[in-house]
Amino acid sequence: MTKVRITVGDTMSAETTDRPLAFTPRFDFRDLQLIVAGYSDPAGRERQLPDTFGSKQWLWSQDEHFRFDRGSRELCGLTFFLPPQSVSVPRGPAAHDEPRTQAGGLRADTAREFAMPQTTVFHCDPGATELRCLRDVGVLDRRLDARLVLAPDVALLVQEGAVVGWSLGDPARYLTDGFAEPQPSPPAPATRLRLAECLELVSSPLVDQVMDEDADAWHRLRATERALREQRDDRPRAEILHGVISRLIEDYEP
């Protein structure tokens, strides 16, 4: 494996390893976060902190969680957060030219804390084959250099030697509520379609239109809620999505 050095966050430099994380991703749709780690609840995440270093949320900050083992300096867990704005149609070379892909882990150069701001925009295709979250829309105007696959279907997106986003392949497969393990069976095609719809409904600009009582936005919201309520196959995943959409209706129904 060819080792590559990349910049993570504002100041941290790290080198790739041949040891990706073995954890199954958990796409917690209630809190809109992706968890790739060994802990099973928030308390477990807190217990891990003294033995690790990296980036994390603290008062007034909105950082992604990158945690490295304090002894080996190797990546041992992460949590990513869904950005607040969706980009409906990706632009430029990043949407068409796939970069080289490499599976592996990361080893930080030094054991210290650093800042890793959350991504700001995302794109998910109508069939929810991939969720791609980016630092800003400018990333879409330039070709990505590489995709570092850190865990099953989870990759860091690298541009000009720096991490500029992350992606989750087949996000419906990893849908869950909180820290629970995802369903082992593959998602139904209907679940993938509903997930793509729900991602738009919980993000700007569509969620802003829902709050402003826009008639078309509310038609889409109610149609998705009805489809999830009536879906017969893949019920556990459908119920996760339905719970979030139902709360959106309860909170903002005119």
Rank of each mutant, 00 (worst) to 15 (best):
Arg45Leu: 05
Arg45Ile: 05
Glu46Leu: 13
Glu46Ile: 09
Glu46Gly: 08
Gln48Thr: 08
Gln48Leu: 15
Leu49Gly: 06
Pro50Cys: 07
Asp51His: 09
Asp51Lys: 04
Ser55Phe: 13
Ser55Tyr: 12
Lys56Val: 07
Gln57Phe: 06
Gln57Trp: 05
Trp58Gln: 10
Leu59Tyr: 12
Leu59Ala: 13
Ser61Pro: 04
Glu64Asp: 14
His65Arg: 02
Phe66Gly: 03
Arg67Trp: 02
Arg67Tyr: 03
Phe68Ile: 08
Asp69His: 09
Arg70Pro: 05
Arg70Gly: 11
Gly71Tyr: 02
Ser72Phe: 04
Ser72Asn: 06
Gly77Ala: 07
Thr79Val: 15
Thr79Gln: 07
Phe80Ala: 04
Leu82Asn: 09
Pro83His: 04
Pro83Met: 10
Pro84Glu: 09
Ser86Val: 07
Val87Ala: 08
Val87Tyr: 11
Val87Arg: 14
Ser88Cys: 02
Val89Met: 11
Val89Ala: 11
Val89Leu: 14
Pro90Asn: 07
Arg91Val: 15
Gly92Glu: 07
Pro93Lys: 12
Pro93Ile: 14
Ala94Cys: 01
Ala94Asp: 00
His96Ile: 12
Asp97Gln: 05
Pro99Cys: 10
Pro99Ile: 06
Ala103Leu: 07
Gly104Pro: 05
Gly104His: 11
Gly105Pro: 02
Leu106Gly: 05
Leu106Cys: 08
Arg107Met: 11
Ala108Asp: 01
Thr110Gln: 14
Ala111Phe: 02
Arg112Val: 07
Arg112Pro: 03
Glu113Ser: 14
Phe114Ile: 06
Met116Gln: 11
Met116Ile: 03
Pro117Lys: 09
Pro117Ala: 08
Pro117Trp: 10
Gln118Ser: 03
Thr119Gln: 13
His123Asp: 11
Cys124Asn: 00
Asp125Thr: 02
Pro126Gln: 08
Pro126Asp: 12
Thr129Phe: 07
Thr129Gln: 14
Glu130Trp: 06
Leu131Met: 12
Leu131Glu: 06
Leu131Thr: 04
Arg132Met: 10
Arg132Trp: 07
Arg132Leu: 12
Arg132Lys: 12
Asp136Tyr: 02
Val137Pro: 02
Gly138Arg: 09
Gly138Ala: 14
Gly138Glu: 15
Asp141Gln: 15
Arg142Thr: 14
Arg142Met: 07
Leu144Trp: 10
Ala146Pro: 00
Ala146Asn: 04
Arg147Asn: 08
Arg147Tyr: 10
Leu150Asn: 00
Ala151Cys: 05
Pro152Ile: 13
Val154Asn: 01
Ala155Arg: 13
Ala155Glu: 14
Leu156Pro: 06
Leu157Cys: 13
Leu157Pro: 12
Val158Asn: 03
Val158Met: 05
Val158Ile: 15
Gln159Arg: 15
Glu160Tyr: 12
Gly161Asp: 13
Gly161Leu: 11
Ala162Gln: 14
Ala162Arg: 12
Ala162Tyr: 01
Val164Gln: 02
Trp166Pro: 10
Ser167His: 01
Ser167Met: 06
Pro171Met: 08
Ala172His: 03
Arg173Trp: 06
Arg173Pro: 02
Arg173His: 13
Tyr174Phe: 15
Tyr174Arg: 01
Leu175Tyr: 04
Leu175Lys: 03
Leu175Asp: 00
Thr176Val: 04
Asp177Cys: 05
Gly178Ser: 10
